[in-house]
């Protein structure tokens, strides 16, 4: 049996350093101050099936969680994703590596049940 809970918001949110000498918007009384923040390090590497090929080709641009959170997808959908990373985002992936990467992704995620048509194709999804 499950019970639902809420996350409690801490009233103090650390992480931002504010310094003096800002800009005040008189009409709206909003003060802009210099901000300096630190983002958490990505750290993690792919583990498990296909990890070596993904660590070599994918970690440069993004952390693994995004890939690991994807649903099972047909191989041709994965291929269009990998190709997009190269053609649209400049990832240094050679033609020869693409089948290996696609194989690793299918191995990790499995294929969709049935024969579900997939993916973004022409739409070039994002968001």
């Amino acid at each position: 049996m499950r019970t639902r809970y809420l996350i409690f918001l801490l009233s103090v949110v650390p992480g931002a350093t504010l310094a003096a000498s800002g800009v005040t918007f008189p009409a709206s009384k909003i003060d802009l101050k210099p901000q300096s923040v630190t983002l958490p390090g990505s750290g993690a590497r792919y583990e498990g099936p296909g990890a070596a090929v993904l660590n070599t080709n994918c970690l440069l641009c993004h952390s693994p969680a995004f890939v690991d959170s994807q649903p099972p997808l047909p191989a041709d959908v994965w291929k269009s994703e990998v190709t997009k990373m190269r053609d649209s985002f400049g990832a240094p992936i050679g033609d020869a590596a693409i089948p290996d990467i696609v194989r690793a992704l299918v191995e990790r995620h499995g294929l969709p049940a049935g024969n579900a048509p997939g993916g973004e194709g022409e739409a070039g999804a994002s968001g």
Binding site: V13, T38, P40, S42, A44, H62, A65
Partner: peptide
């Protein structure tokens, strides 16, 4: 999904992480 505790990401309370980088 992992929950990032408050303050893990700057100026942010507890958030659901879909990707760390880019966030």
């Amino acid at each position: 999904r992992q929950i990032a505790p408050a303050g893990t990401f700057p100026e942010k309370a507890a958030m659901i992480i879909h990707r760390t980088r880019p966030p």
